[in-house]
Simulated scan of single mutants.
Amino acid sequence: MRRGIYLIEEVDFRPMNSRAPREYLTWLTRYKREDEALDRPVLTSGLSIRSREIDLVGAFYAVGITGHPQFRAVTLWDCHGGWDGGWRQMMEIYDGVDDRLFLSDIDDLRFSAFSRPLGAVAGGPAIADLLAEPYAAPFYVLESARVRPGAALDYLAAVAEERAPILADHGHRCVGLYEVLLCDSEVVTLWGATLDDHLALQRAYDAALGLDDEVEPDPRLLAWRKRSRDFLEGPWRETLIAPFPGSRLAPR
């Protein structure tokens, strides 16, 4: 079985117009729904590549108060067929640099976009399996961490074995464990949770620090923070993202 290949993109909007991310996510989810009817990939003026194998599985609005620049949208794409499937289709549009590559219906709407290819690792679910359940959560926790060069797979293995069961006890479900590809020092993980689960987890962590005496502490949360430093070398951050209505991982 080949590994799953995904793409995560973070999009910023300027000036700070709160309608811009809504307009972008509305446009994106609508035209990707139309792509489900395609029987082959096509390159069209104003829309770049359209393909059902490049599947928009998650479209999210960043919860700015949790550490995102405001305003930001996050999208997650599943490259069906892996390297030889959706990823190949995305790369083929750069062969010959077709004029249509430089046209988009959303020109000037986005200020900047940062894309990272992701490789799924053992211990994490395939998103296609989650969608088949179907699974969806009202919030998702997006972790981005810089690890020691070469330590990405070791960190993710520890997350799967040690951290995931702790978070599961606090209502957080693992949605994806990913090595950031084309580099050797970054990982991304994704977790689904309710608002109540998010709040309870934060309070259990506070209680373990001795800063909340009204709830039960979970010392395992502190132990994991210490354990994670065996792998981390740079910034570690978790932020919350809310699924955009009409996207695949959004509650219906």
Score class of each variant (00 low, 15 high):
R252C: 03
L109C: 01
A160E: 06
E133N: 12
L209F: 11
I54M: 02
R19H: 11
F244A: 01
A242S: 14
R52W: 09
A157G: 14
D213S: 08
D129A: 08
V141P: 04
A160W: 02
Y6M: 07
A145V: 00
D206Q: 15
V74W: 03
F114W: 14
I166E: 06
Y31C: 00
L167P: 06
F114C: 03
W224I: 11
I49K: 03
P219E: 13
P117L: 09
E179Y: 10
K226L: 10
L249T: 12
L38A: 03
P217H: 07
A120Y: 09
I166P: 11
V42T: 05
F231R: 04
R148W: 14
G46T: 06
T75D: 01
G124V: 13
L7Q: 14
E34I: 04
V180E: 03
F111D: 15
T75Q: 00
A242E: 15
L38N: 09
G58F: 01
H68A: 11
D154M: 04
I166C: 05
E133I: 02
A193L: 10
L177W: 01
G119F: 11
L190A: 02
L131S: 05
R100K: 00
R220D: 13
L199N: 13
M16K: 13
R22P: 00
E162R: 15
E23T: 04
L38R: 15
F102V: 00
V187C: 05
L201D: 04
Y135T: 09
I93L: 10
E92I: 05
A157R: 15
W27L: 09
T66K: 14
Q70R: 15
V57E: 06
D35R: 01
Y24W: 12
A164W: 02
A126V: 03
A158D: 15
H198M: 06
L156H: 01
Y155V: 12
I49C: 02
V42W: 07
T66C: 13
R40E: 11
S228N: 13
A128I: 02
C79S: 10
L195W: 14
N17I: 11
L156P: 06
R72A: 12
A207D: 04
A207P: 01
R100F: 00
P245G: 07
Y31M: 03
A204S: 14
L182Y: 12
A113S: 09
L232M: 08
A204I: 01
R148C: 09
D12C: 08
R40S: 06
D213T: 13
R110S: 00
A208G: 15
Q89H: 14
L130Y: 09
L25C: 05
I8Q: 13
L118D: 01
R252T: 08
E53A: 15
